[in-house]
């Protein structure tokens, strides 16, 4: 096996050398390709490159690329589409926004500016509910666990710890107050443990009991937007676990990418 591979690789390399610069039926065209600086050059040229079929030389000064290609094997359109999909606007195609967003070191001005969109609604006045910071921190923690980002989870749990300490019980409604008396110690305990470890598995164990406590608390308030109580029967070694979310779509904090969509909404608090 190994010998054959080496042999084949050698053969490919040799033939590559032999055929290099041999684009037959060559057509060369000059096309506008957007980019801001030398940093964009490599990206554009590698997006256009196809062995023995197409190559490009991009010039930062003029913002144009000299594209040579084998007119029997491909078309300029195909090459420009590839360049756009790599994030670079050009004469025929505009790059998808997410492809452009990935070009961290080549932030060129887009060829077409998006039309002005209606400005987003002004956020509501600061919440008076003293539990809002607790839930905000909880949701941020949940999102960190969805991403399986232990560092971020620890940081958010620390924020949660602080928020728990800062709650002024006298400002709570009667129902919230009663629940808060029961759970605040456990919430603080779980939050602290999550903040002290970098082990996602351990964090998720605490997150399960934390979620159950905050669910009983959430039931006592009238949220400004619906809160979804969600359940995945496979989490927690098959015992099942719950969490709260602001989105109805399932994004599971117990598995991250492994089983992201496991679960369903069991209750909507609104």
């Amino acid at each position: 096996m190994k010998l054959t591979r080496i042999f084949l690789t050698a053969l490919l390399l040799l033939s590559g050398l032999y055929l290099h610069a041999a684009i037959s039926n060559k057509v060369t065209e000059k096309v506008r390709v957007a980019g801001s600086a030398e940093a964009c050059k490599a990206g554009i040229e590698s997006a256009a490159y196809m062995r023995n079929t197409a190559e490009a030389t991009w010039d930062a000064a003029t913002g144009t690329a000299l594209i040579s290609y084998d007119s029997r094997k491909t078309t300029l359109d195909v090459i420009l589409r590839k360049i756009a999909l790599a994030g670079y606007d050009n004469a025929r195609y505009l790059a998808p926004d997410d492809a452009y967003a990935k070009l961290t070191d080549c932030r060129y001005p887009r060829l077409v500016k998006p039309a002005p969109v209606a400005s987003p609604a002004i956020p509501n006045a600061p919440a008076v509910d003293p539990l809002t910071p607790v839930f905000d921190a909880y949701f941020a923690l949940k999102n960190a666990l969805i991403a399986a980002d232990a560092k971020a989870a620890a940081a958010q749990a620390a924020t949660l710890s602080k928020a728990v300490k800062a709650v002024n019980m006298n400002e709570l409604s009667h129902a919230s107050h009663e629940v808060w008396m029961k759970i605040s110690k456990d919430v603080a305990f779980d939050a602290e443990h999550i903040s002290e470890t970098q082990d996602v598995g351990h964090q998720r164990d605490h997150f399960a009991s934390l979620s159950d406590d905050l669910y009983t608390l959430a039931k006592t308030r009238k949220p400004t937007q619906p809160v979804y109580y969600q359940h995945c029967p496979m989490a927690n070694q098959g015992k099942g676990a719950n969490w709260l979310s602001l989105e109805s779509a399932i994004r599971n904090p117990y598995y991250g990418s492994q089983m992201l969509t496991c679960g369903k909404t069991t209750e909507t608090i609104q």
Partner: peptide, 16 residues
């Protein structure tokens, strides 16, 4: 006019 592309769907990760 100039064509705005939609971003293509990346290949499936079969082993997952």
């Amino acid at each position: 006019g100039i064509r705005q592309l939609a971003s293509p769907l990346p290949r499936l990760n079969y082993f997952e």
